[in-house]
Structure formats: C-alpha cells, structure tokens
C-alpha cells in the first residue's frame, strides 16, 4: 500500500514577501522557499505509517518550478522514497482547479490508497487544492486532520473545527487527508540525509505527460489574482509608559469606552 504526499514549496514564514514588478506574483528569485509547513506534518504522518508497517512506499508529488528541486529534496531527506515534480514552466499561474486537475492525474497514475497533504498552503491560504483533488478523483476527504489511525481498508480520522471541537470520522480508503499542526512532530533532516536524498529517484513530468496542455489550462483560468498590495499602514497609537500602572490602565480602559467605543 502506497501513500502519495502532495507538497508545495512556499515562501519562508519569516520571509518578507518580495513581489514581481507587475505585482501579480511573488518574486521567486529574491524569496527563500521552504516546504509548506503543513506539508511537513503530512510527510511525517506517511513516514510513521510506513514505519508501522501499514505502507510500503511514500511518494512526494508537487506542481512547481524545477528551481525548487532542493525543497523537494528536503522532503526526500525526511525519508520519502521518491518524488515527482510536475514542471510548471509556462503555466506557473494556474488557478486552484487547474492545479488540482494536474495533480489528480498524477495521483491517478500512482493509485495510492492514502493521499496526504498539508491542510492549506501558507502562501495563498486557500485550502483549495487538496479538496479539489479529492473531488476530481471522486474520493472522500477529511481536512484539518489532528489524528489518524489506519486499520486495513478503513481509517479513523479526527478533524479540528471551530470552538476547539473535534469531528470524528470513519472513512474507507482510498482517501484524501489534510494534515494539521497537532497531528505529529515532523523529524529534522540531517546534512548526510540531504546528500543521500539527492540520489533518490525524482521524476520530472510535464503537463503533457499527464495528458494536459499547460497553455490551454492557463487560458481556462477562472480565478484571477492581481495587484498585490501591502496592508494599509495604521497611524501610530497611544502608548503609555513611565506612569503609575493603575493610571495607565485607567486611561486605556476609558479610551476603549469613550474613544474606540468597543467596551
């Protein structure tokens, strides 16, 4: 039984976001990329299942630029067996539905029983693609997974929702699952591990290999993103210091009531 883990290189969470001059995308050349942090929980979960004897192979798959190969290597260094890069050259800005169509085709060719990914990518914060892949393939999905137990042909899955509530599911495999932060603690990669990972199998495919024409997909984009702007700057606030604490607290509470009118 095989797991396929869908991953996405995203800008480092600590990075300042650099934009291209047309403000339609991230400037890849000047931004450091990492594995989307939620995807690391997905990889870790697949590796744990393999170590428990419930899986025989863990395959990574991503739709990205070949320049992000090092990010994929990091996932291989965690312990994944091999990787598939779907090269996005010429169709970098596909919308979610089109990316999902490509990834679904790659998943189908591998016929895994478990398809994992991070609950969302931290760049566009969409939480679209994984669920869309499930829909394209006609499979059930559970996203924001905090606990996973695989028992033969079924899995028991917990999902975190609002108010700290947890939905508990039983689902038949194959299934698409989106990993949340509290699912596990991803392992660290070592430098020797990374050296070794560079020798692991990493196939590069084009959309054409999966039966799609990238340019045609691009022309069918229905979601358009443009004019990225920084959030509006706030004028400086009133910060009190050096006075008796009780007076400062009193002032702020009164301002909240009389000026801000929020209490």
């Amino acid at each position: 039984m095989k797991a396929l883990v869908l991953i996405k290189p995203t800008p480092d969470t600590e990075a300042k976001i650099m934009l291209t001059s047309d403000r339609k995308a991230i400037d890849h050349a000047s931004t450091k990329f990492i594995i989307n942090p939620y995807d690391e929980f997905a990889i870790e979960e697949a590796l744990k299942l393999k170590e428990a004897g419930k899986l025989t192979e863990v395959v990574l798959c991503t739709f990205t630029s070949q320049t992000n190969k090092e990010v994929v290597v990091k996932g291989l260094a965690m312990g994944a067996d091999r990787a598939i890069i779907i090269d996005n050259q010429g169709c970098e800005s596909l919308d979610s539905a089109n990316v999902a169509r490509l990834l679904a085709a790659a998943v189908k060719a591998e016929s895994p029983q478990i398809i994992l990914g991070g609950k969302q990518a931290i760049d566009d914060d969409n939480m679209h693609v994984l669920t869309m892949v499930a829909e394209v393939l006609g499979l059930p999905h559970v996203n924001v997974v905090t606990k996973l137990e695989v028992n033969g042909e079924t899995a028991k899955v917990e999902r975190e929702v609002e108010g700290g509530q947890t939905e508990v599911y039983e689902v038949k495999l194959p299934v698409v699952l989106g990993a949340h932060k509290s699912l596990n603690s991803p392992r660290y990669t070592s430098l020797p591990g990374i050296m070794k990972a560079r020798k692991k199998q990493c196939d590069v495919k084009t959309p054409a290999d999966l039966g799609f024409d990238g340019a045609v997909l691009l022309a069918k984009n229905k979601a358009k993103f443009q004019n990225f702007q920084p959030p509006a700057e706030k004028p400086p606030g009133k910060v009190f210091k050096g006075e008796p604490l009780e007076d400062m607290v009193d002032k702020v509470v009164k301002l909240l009531r009389n000026e801000a009118k929020v209490i």
């Binding site: 931290i122 358009k224 993103f225």
Partner: peptide, 16 residues
C-alpha cells in the same frame, strides 16, 4: 483577499 497571512492583499476576480 489577504494572502501570505495578511502580509499582502490581492485584488481577485472570477472570470470566464
């Protein structure tokens, strides 16, 4: 739409 956890805001549109 806020992106990158609010570090940028994008103009978005549904087309075609």
């Amino acid at each position: 739409k806020p992106m990158f956890a609010g570090k940028t805001i994008a103009d978005v549109e549904l087309v075609e």
